[in-house]
Design a protein around this nucleic acid. Sequence first.
DNA 1: GACAAACACGAACGATCGTGCTAAATTGTT
DNA 2: AACAATTTAGCACGATCGTTCGTGTTTGTC
Lengths: 222, 222
Amino acid sequence: MNAIERSNQAQLRRLSKGEETRAQILDVALNVASESGFEALTIGSLAERTGLSKSGLFAHFGSKEDLQIAVLDEGARRVTDMVFGKAMASPRGVIRLRALFGNWLTWADTCQLKGGCPIMAAAFEFDDRPGPVRDAVLGHHQRMQREIARSVSICVDTGEFRGDTDSRQFAFEILGIANAFYFSHRLFREADASERAFAAFERLVKNALATSPQSGDSNPAH
Amino acid sequence: MNAIERSNQAQLRRLSKGEETRAQILDVALNVASESGFEALTIGSLAERTGLSKSGLFAHFGSKEDLQIAVLDEGARRVTDMVFGKAMASPRGVIRLRALFGNWLTWADTCQLKGGCPIMAAAFEFDDRPGPVRDAVLGHHQRMQREIARSVSICVDTGEFRGDTDSRQFAFEILGIANAFYFSHRLFREADASERAFAAFERLVKNALATSPQSGDSNPAH
DNA sequence: GACAAACACGAACGATCGTGCTAAATTGTT
DNA sequence: AACAATTTAGCACGATCGTTCGTGTTTGTC
């Protein structure tokens, strides 16, 4: 959801003035966090971008820390919508898992976040800085990993995956592929990043399929 | 190499005073970058930690940007030593590749960098900020990916891996596993992070082995 | 339209940021 | 020991950081 849609929604749902301003701030802030990281989320620059005064903006969040957490939560909310929510339209099992994976790779672009997934960046920024922000990052990522593992378990339930599939290991490896995609896509700017990611994903899936894959093409080449 | 060893080396090689001070600064700076990221590399805090004055420290690097790049290069130098250099002691082929992978997971701990690999963190910090620092990060990572792909190619040469193995895809997936390890180890603080990483790695290897693996245990569970 | 509540602004604060100067102290060489 | 070169300290600068406070303006309710 972009700022304009939110503005429309505000008129419909009678969102209070303060709540709407706050939402607009978060929209801008999420873009900044996406492009330049959470460290770059300064009150001054945010005020300038939103047209508010420093103190006016500051009043919506009691502290910079609370602002960071609010941005984090907003990012997580969008991930939930754009990745997990959207995948629910697909039928249970491997098809939904594949949709989930695909959505994860593209959700930042879909949301017009020019700098990639902020939640991903936050993990590296705060993994060694104890405090409420790190706790929030940890919580969101743990929830996401749990959700992915659950989607893998469903593939076992449907009989598509073998019964001895380790769903948490599967989620671990999916997280890895998504990260490799980010390196390839955002740092290296390689055009075939998404193909490489899907190739890795399909290899992962093939290894778990109940119909044993003994043919010769089970190699890491696409 | 820690500060003390460097100090000894300075006495042996007649490292000039300025060069030694610079090396000590970089040692401290690398720790800061490891724990708190490159954004936290401020002249003031570094001066305090090293006992130098702000201007005295600043004089060793012409600008903050040059300092960041110097820290980056020092980090890359250590990676080259601790990961690639060390793996050269192992025989060519899969054994060396495995050593390479293992070294990559543990090198930050081995170097007593309490906050994980700084080069990894830098990738996420600068992937969307064009400039000399990003260029340096990009260069180091591209070099590392090339080295890994080359090690995979050697496994083809030794006849251990099939001829149609895509070495760059292999390197892509290794990068992913290393990233997943970082999430699991540094953010989630999971005790079995390294087991999960090695399980994923061995699955990757098994798929590329020339001796076709059609048995039923080629599953993502360890 | 009145009135209370919510919201935004402007000014100022101490601290710290990166970065210039100049002078003093230290180092290396003869 | 003298001297030049290198290295470090001291001080100051404009800018920006997060935050507080008092005042004005806008909003929602009766």
